[in-house]
Design a protein around this nucleic acid. Structure first.
Lengths: 349, 349
DNA sequence: ACGCAGCATTGATGCCGGCTATGGACCGGA
DNA sequence: TCCGGTCCATAGCCGGCATCAATGCTGCGT
């Protein structure tokens, strides 16, 4: 459950005080005239008189001195009116702030947006997104986090982040997942390895030993193991803490691995030490989806973001010259013909 | 008429914002739970839900994200809640201030009190009152002014002062006058003057020439002229700007004058240069009254002040050894047997 | 003495916030 | 998969209170 902060808490005895009453009081104090004050407040004079009288009774303080010569503030009234002005001023700032925020909402994307991504995607996805996002939505303020899937889901549900880039399948209870693009996997191996071992690049022809994995908790680790149809027991102890580390290990001849296409920089500083080869089947890879709370306000905000990411992704050239497959658009799907897999896909809307 | 200040004026569009709504919002933000928040606010959960929803609609901003996992603040909600806390805090200060002032009213006399007095009385009355007043009402904050009767009445009616010590008759429209004491007049003359001129000290035996008066506007001037039954034409040009100046002029042998008893200090530094002689009739003098607006709140405040002044005055010994006559008390009235004269005496409510 | 200006009072009216009861979505356990 | 519990939303009704138009009252000026 969410933490219950026990804050100072107001004494709860605002005694039915109303901002309208304070407006009336200030109006009379300004104009020294009940009738004029009522006019300014757009109410009838009796209404204003009654409200001020009731307020005076509640406060047990006479604010105004009524006489035929005019309306005078009592000394107490003077001090209270000064404080009333402060209250109204702060209330006005509240309204102004709300109006500003509401107007900001008129933009499709504006204000702070806390985005998360899995670590095997974020460092390679965000740099490609920042420029187009800033160009399309200048008033958007991104706060980025990179944690593994489980933490991502927890932070998402706890409201610590607003949306997350991740790879299904995930437990999507209470979430909406919008597929964005299909990211193919590549086989990374040392060019010095026996060419025969990787000659055909089918999943069945992978060597029995030498697979290097990421740490526990990375979805990419699980997906790689699933592809290889083997338990991690065979190469226990061979793991890296990040994709970059993993690529360096492969380049150093420590073994081979399976990498998502976006993690390969262009140009690649490891080009001479590392060969990344596509698989012969187009469905080897992972779907990337954007996830947000189903209860989130302004869901179109995330759909807008998703659409922009899809548009961008359609233009990215991979290291092997091919392009990413779009999730829903009409373009040619070069990868991921069957759509994002996994259970837990949430109904949308 | 009273001046109509045209102040900045709030934009008048607080849009029906209510402090209660802000309390609800803050409660939900604190507790992350509509039911608990409703309990804290002492209302039913539906009431609170509806009000918050209506507020969100008015602001066109979703403050909270409702989900089965709990209640989350949206980023916009976070900022607005912060401002709502400020508004409520200032409103609470308003309430606290009002309570403090109301409690202060429990004292018979407390807080700021703006008192005025005619210049022929104030400099001699206030010094005698300050100590007893501070002793009886420690929380009383006096602000003292000394101006002539007409200005006094204007300031009183305009609300620039709360009460005034003056001498009737005055135009008491809209005012309450409470008689305090009768202050006898003394004849001030140089000891070197012919003794025969002041032998009997009846009003009829005053010398024809040599009367020194205060400037125009001092009620004492008019009263002195009335006593002497003569026009100021006789001694035109012989006038002083203050009683002290006047006494020095008499001491210098410039002429003679009529002084109120309280203005003679004890001991008198001019004792050897100046003789102050009582009149043979006890009703030669002036009444001193306290005046306040009939519309003034807490009239008992001024009656309390008046009673204290009367008590004090009963104990003052004049330079000639006699005492001031009390206005209403049961004591022996040595002066002013017929009570304060003049029209305009107000009914007391 | 009359008229006027200005705040207070009155009684009718309608909005609005409150409550109880119920609905519906979601979650967790069997 | 069903069931019960939790929690927020909805529905319907009710009562109070703010509002208004009309009138009263008081004090001042002429």
């Amino acid at each position: 459950m969410l933490r219950v902060r026990h804050e100072p808490v107001f004494t709860m005895t605002l005694a039915g005080l109303s901002l309208r009453d304070l407006e009336y009081v200030v109006a009379v104090a300004d104009l020294h005239h009940f009738g004029k004050a009522a006019e300014r407040c757009a109410v009838s004079q009796p209404s204003l008189s009654i409200q001020i009288r009731r307020l005076e009774e509640r406060l047990a303080i006479t604010l105004f001195e009524r006489s035929a010569r005019g309306v005078l503030l009592t000394p107490d009234g003077k001090r209270l009116v000064a404080q009333a002005r402060i209250v109204l001023q702060e209330a006005q700032r509240f309204i102004d702030l709300a109006q500003g925020l509401a107007q900001g909402q008129a933009d499709l994307l504006s204000g702070p947006l806390r985005l998360g991504a899995i670590p095997t995607l974020g460092p390679y996805l965000f740099p490609r997104l920042l420029r187009p996002l800033r160009q399309a939505f200048p008033r958007l303020q991104l706060i980025l986090h990179e944690v593994r899937t489980q933490d991502l889901l927890e932070q998402l549900r706890a409201g610590e982040i607003d949306a997350a880039f991740l790879s299904p399948p995930v437990d999507a209870h209470g979430l909406v997942l919008e597929p964005l693009f299909f990211e193919p996997f590549l086989l990374a191996h040392s060019p010095g390895a026996a060419a025969a071992d990787f000659g055909r690049l089918t999943l069945d022809s992978l060597p029995a030993e030498g697979l290097i994995l990421l740490e526990e908790g990375h979805c990419l680790r699980d997906q790689a193991l699933l592809l290889c149809s083997r338990r991690p027991a065979g190469s226990a102890g061979r793991h890296a803490t990040s994709l970059d580390t993993l690529r360096h290990m492969v380049a150093a001849g420590e073994g081979w691995s399976i990498l998502p296409a976006l993690c390969i920089p262009d140009p690649d500083p490891l080009r001479d030490l590392l060969r990344q080869t596509p698989f012969d089947r187009p469905d080897v890879g992972r779907w990337i989806s954007l996830a947000w709370r189903a209860s989130s306000p302004r869901p179109w905000q995330f759909r807008t973001l998703a659409a922009l990411v899809m548009d961008c992704a359609a233009g990215w050239c991979l290291a092997d010259g091919r392009r990413l497959g779009r999730a829903m658009g009409g373009g040619v799907e070069e990868y991921g013909a069957e759509g994002p897999g996994g259970e837990g896909q949430e109904a949308r809307g």
